[in-house]
Computed example of a mutant assay.
Amino acid sequence: MIVEKIMININNMEKEEVEKRHIEKVYLESSHLVKRVQLVKTDHGQEIGIRLKESRDLVAGDVLYMDDKNLIMIEVISDDLLVISPRSLHEMGTIAHQLGNRHLPAQFEDDDMLVQYDYLVEDLLKELQITYKREDRKVKQAFRHIGHSHG
C-alpha cells in the first residue's frame, strides 16, 4: 500500500467513528515526521509506503488509511527532552536567546519550553539556574530547524 495523502487526524474524528474500527499504529520517531517519502511498518507487521504529494509534516494522530473496519494512524515515540520552566519573562528571554544562538529548535506546551536533550544545554540551564527537568515525552510534531545563516 502506498499512501499519498493524509485522510484526517484522529483527534478530528468523532469518538464513535474511531471506536468502531480496528486500529493499527505506525510508530515513528519525531525526526521522521518531516519525511514525506518513507517505508514504514505497522504494529501488526503491514508495510506501508508513504509518499505525500502535499508539502507537510506528519503529525501524531494522522490517519494514513481508513475503511469501514480498519484505521492506520501515526503514533510518535517518546523523545528524551529537557522541559524548561522559566519563572519569569527575564528567564524566558535569557534561555530563548541562548538556545537561539545555538540554533536549537524548541516547542512550547503550556508554560513549558521543550528541547531535545543535550548535555551542553543541561549544563547551561544549571549555570543560569533556570528550572528544568529531563523526561521522556511524546511530542505531536517534529522539532524543525529554521533555516538561517550568519553570513
Rank of each mutant, 00 (worst) to 15 (best):
M1G: 14
M1C: 09
M1W: 09
I2T: 15
I6K: 03
N9W: 00
N11A: 12
N11F: 08
N12A: 12
N12D: 15
M13G: 05
K15Q: 10
E16D: 07
V18W: 02
K20F: 03
H22F: 07
H22G: 02
E24G: 03
K25R: 14
V26W: 01
V26H: 02
V26M: 03
V26A: 00
V26K: 00
Y27R: 09
S30I: 06
H32I: 03
K35R: 11
K35F: 10
R36K: 14
V37P: 02
V40P: 02
K41M: 14
D43N: 15
G45S: 06
G45V: 04
Q46N: 08
E47D: 10
E47N: 11
I48A: 02
R51Y: 12
L52M: 12
R56Y: 12
D57V: 08
V59C: 09
A60V: 09
A60D: 06
G61L: 09
L64E: 00
Y65K: 01
M66R: 10
N70E: 13
N70G: 03
L71R: 00
L71M: 11
L71T: 01
I74V: 15
D79T: 11
D80G: 08
L82R: 05
V83Y: 02
I84F: 04
P86D: 10
R87T: 04
R87V: 01
R87W: 02
L89A: 14
H90K: 15
E91I: 08
M92A: 15
G93I: 08
T94A: 12
I95K: 00
I95M: 06
A96C: 13
H97E: 15
L99Q: 05
G100E: 06
L104G: 03
A106L: 14
A106C: 09
M113Q: 01
M113S: 04
L114W: 08
L114E: 01
V115T: 04
V115F: 03
Y119F: 11
L120F: 07
L120Y: 08
L120W: 06
E122T: 03
D123K: 15
D123Y: 10
L128M: 08
Q129K: 15
Q129S: 14
Q129T: 11
Y132W: 01
R134F: 06
E135F: 06
R137V: 08
K140P: 00
K140M: 07
H145R: 13
H145N: 12
I146K: 12
I146A: 10
G147E: 14
G147L: 13
H150I: 08
G151Q: 08
